[in-house]
């Protein structure tokens, strides 16, 4: 029994020291919120449409990370995004909040250049600078950059912006007998 004492004398304080060290370390690196925002942001579709009620995807990610917003508020992401967020945050999967909008297939904005009067209002509205043009000159959408967020539609005074389905979307040729959850839309 007496042989136990040296062990206790050495291990006791050592354990205490390690414990203190760990708790300091935990406190020191405790603030994961920044990386958490990044991880959440990575799962959002980056449409920047503001339908979630935040000025862009990253602000929404920040709100989720702080627990200020629910995970089911992104219509462009739809169920796929909700599932991914639930996975990451260990939350329950739930249906899309319909007050934010409906999930639909990705779109692309196209300006009818004949009708554009060059008012630049759409440029100011576009969250990803996907419109090129200058005052009193014709405007056009840079197709490769447009996220289809629809934010440029309401400001246009002559209603010359239309949404079309994404042309470069590869056509799926999956036989009918292959049943996979629909991840494409």
């Amino acid at each position: 029994m007496t042989q136990l004492w040296p062990t206790l004398i050495i291990l006791g304080p050592a354990g205490l020291l390690i414990g203190i060290g760990l708790s300091i370390a935990a406190r020191r690196w405790q603030d994961h919120s920044d990386t958490m925002i990044e991880r959440i942001n990575k799962l959002l579709p980056q449409t920047q449409c503001e339908q979630c009620g935040h000025p862009g995807c990253r602000p929404y990610a920040r709100a989720i990370a702080r627990g200020e917003a629910d995970i089911n508020r992104c219509p462009p992401g739809g169920d796929t995004t909700i599932r991914a967020l639930a996975d990451l945050l260990g939350k329950q999967v739930k249906a899309l909040d319909s007050s934010c909008g409906e999930h639909k297939a990705p779109l692309l904005a196209v300006i009818d250049e004949q009708r554009c009067i060059g008012c630049t209002l759409c440029i100011q509205a576009c969250p990803v600078d996907a419109i090129a043009g200058a005052a009193k000159w014709m405007h056009t959408v840079i197709a490769a950059e447009c996220t289809g967020c629809e934010l440029c539609l309401p400001p246009c005074p002559v209603d010359c912006i239309d949404l079309v389905s994404l042309a470069d979307q590869p056509q799926r040729r999956i036989p009918a007998h292959v049943q996979i959850p629909d991840l494409a839309a």
Binding site: N41, L44, Q46, Q48, G56, C57, R58, V128, D129, E145
Partner: peptide
């Protein structure tokens, strides 16, 4: 595409 949009959005902000 999403990564690019995120970058462009950040640049615009």
């Amino acid at each position: 595409r999403a990564d690019k949009s995120a970058l462009r959005h950040a640049a615009r902000e």
